[in-house]
Design a protein around this nucleic acid. Structure first.
Lengths: 128, 128
DNA sequence: GATAGGCCTTCCTGTTACTGGAAGGTCAAG
DNA sequence: CTTGACCTTCCAGTAACAGGAAGGCCTATC
């Protein structure tokens, strides 16, 4: 399989796949012409990575998850730990963003949006 | 005022203030010894920037907001537009994150977290 | 006057996870 | 034999700084 087909089937850009090879997440073979030759197992790994990334896991987490996936002697707790830390980070980020959203909503709601210079948004930022 | 005092009073790291000067957001004077010499107006600008950044505005947005702030002939609509676009982005990000959170919560909740290798999190990522 | 500590300066590198683009080799079809 | 669609490597850029090295400045103290 060439990179184009893998990209299609894994739903990842070819650039991303090359990058994943660069950082050692996948190690495709090479054809005699220099083209990358992906096996089904490489495709499978890439799809795994795509799904993990879609859940917001960092590349470092993905690497760890992939290793655990391939390690028959892993424990569920190792996997769960990674997921839980990640979940906490996401929850924290959501609450940060929710606070920004609330403030912004309030400010936007109070701004007339007309052609006069007076604006509560700027007032709030200037905090005079 | 030297950079240290400004950093304290504006609540920004000195590194960040130097960076803001680099990209032209503030233009402090210089003392004869080469030290940056901040006026009250610089401090005020930096505090403005700090608050805008805390609301998640990008540096580009901050630059635009600062310009509007200093432009007496601005209109509230120009400010509101920037804030509204930003608010939409935040709302979109929150909903992306909320979806990840829901999926992760479900997976984490279904993972025993014990010392056996079987784990629904990995199963879901592998999607066999 | 020497020195120590705490400022300040610039410059360079690294971070995250790619994306875009240039320059050029390969392959299948017409 | 040329065209177009692949593929390759390599370099630069993104966002918004943070860390750290090497060195100058300032004030106080001995």
């Amino acid at each position: 399989m060439n990179i184009g087909e893998v990209a299609n089937r894994a739903g990842l850009p070819a650039k991303t796949i090359r990058y994943y090879e660069d950082i050692g997440l996948v190690r495709p073979m090479r054809d005699s012409n220099g083209y990358r030759a992906f096996r089904e197992s490489d495709l499978h790994k890439l799809a795994f990575l795509g799904r993990a990334r879609a859940l917001g896991f960092s590349i470092a987490d993905c690497r760890a998850l992939l290793q655990l996936y391939e390690d028959e002697s892993r424990t569920a707790s190792e996997v769960k730990d990674i997921a839980q830390v990640h979940l906490s980070r996401i929850e924290a980020k959501i609450s940060d963003l929710a606070e920004m959203r609330d403030t912004l909503r309030d400010l936007v709601g109070r701004c007339s949006g007309d052609d006069r210079p007076d604006c509560p948004i700027l007032k709030s930022l200037a905090d005079d």
